[in-house]
């Protein structure tokens, strides 16, 4: 393994001091399941690896009027076992339960998953459809960004060198809404998405009209993307089979995939169509509207 120093601050102030060191390339460590492998392979070369799990704010997991607060150091296991997540943020629970194996989920969290900014990050589309915001912190203070603005490209996020992710805030889900995430992999578990889709719909309980639809895609562009054309097909209408099919077709507009070892451009576009239909259908089933 490449050499680096290890730091384990116990407070944000301590962490900011380490981040301010001009001579150092600091990389925050949460679950470590991406970072340690990347350092091992020489893909990242930090001079200091800073374990953030000893900072109380980083382990935060709470649900209040503002919504769901996910500390950057909370593990997937912590997150999907948190009752408000299971109840109110189904697609977030589903995607956290798809990240790696049990061993990985016990360490890795959503914070690290988005900081790593892989186009295939399973938790990203679910955060996007739930309108999540990220809280970024550093020596110069805190700032909040919509999750969609956080991803800049493969492995690149919107944080400056001296900033770290503090956590994610997900607003309370609208009444009469449901969300689901599905991905396709060629085996049953333990793989990286060929394509992934999260959908969230808000349905008026009386008229059954779709008030809001949010659809986001993974693994089909340099960053996770929203399928806005597909959303537009659904909003303002009573969702039926024909509209679900049309939304699936339109979702492809947002996909700019590449051909690689996991799948071809054509295959990925086909998956986007099918997974969009399936997640929308599941959302309606959850709401009892089918």
């Amino acid at each position: 393994m490449r050499l680096f120093e290890f730091a384990a601050p116990k407070s944000l102030e301590e962490a900011y001091k380490i981040l301010s060191r001009a001579d150092a390339d600091v990389r925050a460590l949460a679950g470590g399941t991406d970072l340690i492998d990347q350092v091992h392979q020489g893909r990242r070369k930090p001079s200091i690896v800073m374990d953030i799990k000893g900072i109380p704010e980083m382990k935060r997991l709470a649900f209040d009027r503002e919504g769901l607060h996910i500390g950057a150091g909370a593990s997937c296991t912590d997150i999907y076992n948190f009752p408000p997540v299971k109840k109110n943020y189904i697609s977030i629970a589903e995607s956290a339960a798809l990240v790696g194996s049990v061993q990985i989920q016990n360490r890795a969290g959503i914070g690290g998953n988005i900081c790593n900014a892989a186009p295939s990050a399973d938790t990203a589309p679910s955060l996007i459809v739930h309108n999540a915001r990220v809280v970024i912190a550093g020596p110069k203070g805190q700032r909040v960004l919509p999750i969609e603005q956080f991803f800049l490209g493969p492995g690149q996020n919107a944080m400056a060198k001296d900033e770290i992710l503090l956590g994610i805030v997900v607003p309370p889900p609208p009444a009469s809404s449901a969300s689901h995430y599905l991905r396709f992999i060629p085996r049953e578990e333990m793989d990286i998405a060929v394509a992934g889709v999260a959908s969230m719909v808000v349905i008026d309980p009386k008229s059954k009209v779709c008030k809001t639809a949010r659809i986001a895609l993974a693994s089909v562009a340099p960053t996770p993307v929203r399928a806005k054309d597909a959303e537009a097909v659904l909003e303002g209408h009573v969702i039926n089979e024909a509209l679900i099919r049309e939304a699936g077709e339109k979702a492809i507009n947002a996909a700019k995939p590449i051909t690689d070892v996991r799948g071809s451009i054509e295959y990925r576009k086909e998956l986007v169509k099918v997974l969009t239909r399936r997640t929308l259908t599941k959302c309606l089933e959850t709401l009892g509207n089918r």
Binding site: F6, G31, G32, R107
Partner: peptide, 9 residues
């Protein structure tokens, strides 16, 4: 909790 000890410092 189980962990892969190769990915824990």
């Amino acid at each position: 909790r189980t962990a892969d000890s190769c990915l824990v410092l």
